[in-house]
Design a protein around this nucleic acid. Structure first.
Length: 426
RNA sequence: GGAGAAAUGCCGGAGUGGUUGAACGGGGCGGUCUCGAAAACCGUUGUGCCUUUCGGGGCACCGGGGGUUCGAAUCCCUCUUUCUCCGCCA
């Protein structure tokens, strides 16, 4: 969601940039501008009425005190008229504001000028590749077979307890989850992120603030009785900490890290690509969130990309970094880098992290602002976030890429966390 | 879950129908004094929107929403949250 002022000042530029997202914004933007003009006209009329009404009310009070009842009552006939007209104007104004808001929230975030054009994921730009790719002859079993061979994950048991997409992790499989979570959190702490353990159920305002609502309504689990949502990512509660907040300059930079389970309905997904750990309804993820001054946000994005890359390198996984094209960029993002790890047995890339700068898009919905010292006016801050990292596909790649004849090797850095160097059937 | 009390500015806390956007105290900021600091004293200190001849002018906001009234922080309804007591409980 953008501010009208921004849209007004940058109409042509925004239309041009939104075309990168394959979004034709001309009509919508012109509607926004005309609706805003109407809104301002209505507000002018309304405030004139209210100003007169306020003045008369003061006068009436004075007249009563002076005992001039007749004059007071005369004035009341005028206030009666004003009340009627202002009531009508207020209603029109309210409707107009609502309409304006509904128009504005249909406009996706303006993409950054470096976003490549493209239709879908096939047009994403690979900017880097790293790590050592395993010998395909030695890494043939997909992770769901390994998970079953070594009794790490029971997918059928999850179906019994809940349904498809809710796996049960067992023994070394469970320990591996816990090890990864702790590893990711420790790394984040070392990199200056403050650890947060937020609620995993949020209200409607929070869903709106980060842009999941109303756009992705159907992707979240909704608890009808209490009108609450299961979070699809820690981004939602952690970013909403700063909803309706005016930050002081000495609070920057804000860097938070949080582990949470994540819940996604993934309505409409099916097929072999979602097998095993590839796509789940419940999964674990560690998320990093930053809140920055606008002039620093792209530097922060770079820093976050480097940080996520370092995690994957420490896990010794082959990976690549993509700059998402306009067609694959989310509604809310201005610039996103995706990280994918190579899944040896499936012979495909698996997305394990998405690092984005939302610029002021979320901040505008959240009313997240900051004030410089001696500054009279507040400004919208920039929000960024990234997975660091999502567990299931990391586990899939670890299992597949590190399989040997007599067990699955645990990367060195993780051994201190797991307490074992190898997964095997003792 | 039951009974009662409360929600005011950065914080504490007044204010029960008419110059109250809000007393008073604290904190912050600026200044005087000082070599410097403290103390003291003086000044200043919310957000959003509309408008402007850029000096200003106007509107809204005292937990949220609605109502009564010429006029509401103040009265009424409703929701939410917090506190106290009782019950239950990881």
């Amino acid at each position: 969601m953008l501010t009208v002022k921004n849209i007004q000042e940058n109409r042509d530029k925004f239309i041009e940039l939104l075309a990168i997202k394959n979004f034709n914004a001309t009509d919508l933007i012109d509607q926004v501008l005309s609706t805003d003009q109407l809104r301002r006209d209505l507000q002018k009329q309304l405030e004139n009425d209210l100003a007169e009404l306020n003045g008369l009310s003061k006068l009436i009070g004075q007249l009563y005190r002076e005992g001039k009842t007749t004059e007071a009552n005369e004035a009341k006939t005028r206030t009666g008229q004003l009340k009627d007209s202002s009531k009508e104007l207020k209603e029109k104004h309210r409707k107009c504001e609502l309409e304006l808001k509904e128009l504005i929230i249909q406009i996706p975030n303006i993409p950054h000028s470096t976003v490549p054009t493209g239709k879908g994921e096939e047009d994403n730009l690979e900017i880097r590749k790293g790590g050592i790719f395993p010998d395909p002859e030695l890494t043939k079993k997909p992770h769901w077979e390994l998970a079953s061979d070594y009794k790490l994950i029971d997918f059928e048991l999850g179906v019994k307890l809940t349904g498809a997409g809710f796996p049960v992790y067992i023994n070394q499989g469970a320990k591996l989850q816990r090890a990864l979570i702790n590893f990711f959190l420790d790394e984040g702490n070392n990199a200056g992120y403050t650890e947060i353990l937020p609620p995993i159920v949020v209200n409607e305002d929070s869903g709106f603030g980060t842009g999941q609502l109303p756009d992705k309504e159907g992707q979240m689990y909704h608890i009808q009785d209490d009108n609450l949502y299961l979070i699809p990512t820690a981004e939602v509660p952690v970013t909403n900490i700063y909803r309706d907040v005016i930050l002081q300059e000495d609070q920057f930079p804000i860097k938070n890290i949080a582990y949470t389970p994540c819940f996604r309905r993934e309505a409409g997904s099916w097929g072999s690509h979602v097998r095993g750990l590839n796509r789940l309804h419940q999964f674990d993820k560690v998320e990093i969130v930053q809140i920055r001054r606008p002039e620093e946000s792209y530097k922060a994005l770079e820093e976050m990309v480097a940080y996520v890359e370092s995690l994957i390198q420490k896990l010794e996984l082959p990976y690549r970094v993509l700059r998402l094209c306009g067609g694959d960029l989310s509604f809310t993002s201005a610039l996103t880098f995706d990280f994918e790890v190579w899944s040896a047995a499936q012979k495909r890339w698996l997305e394990v992290s998405s690092v984005s700068n939302f610029e002021s898009f979320q901040a505008n919905r959240l009313k997240l602002r900051y004030k410089e010292k001696g500054d009279k006016q507040s400004h919208l801050a920039h929000t960024l976030n990234g997975s660091a990292l999502a567990l299931p596909r990391i586990v899939a790649a670890l299992l597949e890429n590190n399989q040997t004849e007599n067990g699955i090797l645990i990367p060195k850095i993780l051994q201190a966390y797991t307490g074992f160097e190898k997964i095997s059937n003792q």
